[in-house]
């Protein structure tokens, strides 16, 4: 965690040096102004959104879905898993543990591929907390429509890949 933050700030510092070289202090001042005005717009929204995401993470029943999206559930299971993925709350630190619990609980591999793809693409907490406040709802609507079929495609491609490469056994990693 610490090294990610350090890395991001190193990148920020390097970019700042670059901007300073090319545009001088005025460029840095404009960059800072942009960051402050965006930050001010997020100041109230972001904590509220995180609160909402955390409430939802507590309220939704997550362990019971594995049986519905088993390896034999086929296209219907893939579509269901893709939809469920969109409602999986939280960032990777909560979603991957949840996906693993569902996988170990007996869900099929293509269905878990669809679940994770659905979570990556629709993740409503991310839409609420970052995408809508920064990009606006028109962008969200267009992106959601353009991406709607992707998680199902991912699941179908995975199913096809598994069918073609017979003997390829992929299951939950055992620790």
């Amino acid at each position: 965690m610490i090294w990610i933050v350090t890395g991001i700030w190193l990148v920020t510092g390097a970019l700042a040096v670059w901007v300073h070289r090319r545009q001088g202090k005025a460029g840095l001042r404009r960059s800072g102004g942009f960051a402050v005005s965006q930050g001010r717009a997020l100041a109230l929204r972001l904590p509220l959104a995180m609160l909402a995401a955390s409430f939802l993470a507590q309220a939704l029943p997550i362990e019971h879905i594995a049986s519905v999206i088993g390896p034999q559930s086929g296209l219907i299971g893939i579509v269901l898993a893709a939809g469920l993925g969109g409602f999986m709350p939280g960032g990777p630190m909560t979603s991957f543990p949840i996906a693993l619990i569902v996988y170990e609980g007996g869900a099929g591999t293509p269905q878990i591929v669809a679940l994770l793809a659905g979570w990556s693409i629709f993740a409503m907490h991310r839409v609420l907390a970052y995408e809508a406040p920064i990009m606006g709802w028109a962008f969200v609507a267009l992106r959601m429509s353009a991406c709607a079929v992707l998680p199902v495609l991912a699941g179908l491609f995975a199913q096809a890949a598994l069918a073609v490469s017979e003997g390829l056994q992929i299951g939950p990693a055992i620790f």
Binding site: I8, L15, S31, A35
Partner: peptide, 8 residues
């Protein structure tokens, strides 16, 4: 950092 990167 992200907001600053966006600005820069």
């Amino acid at each position: 950092a992200g907001l600053l990167i966006g600005g820069l």
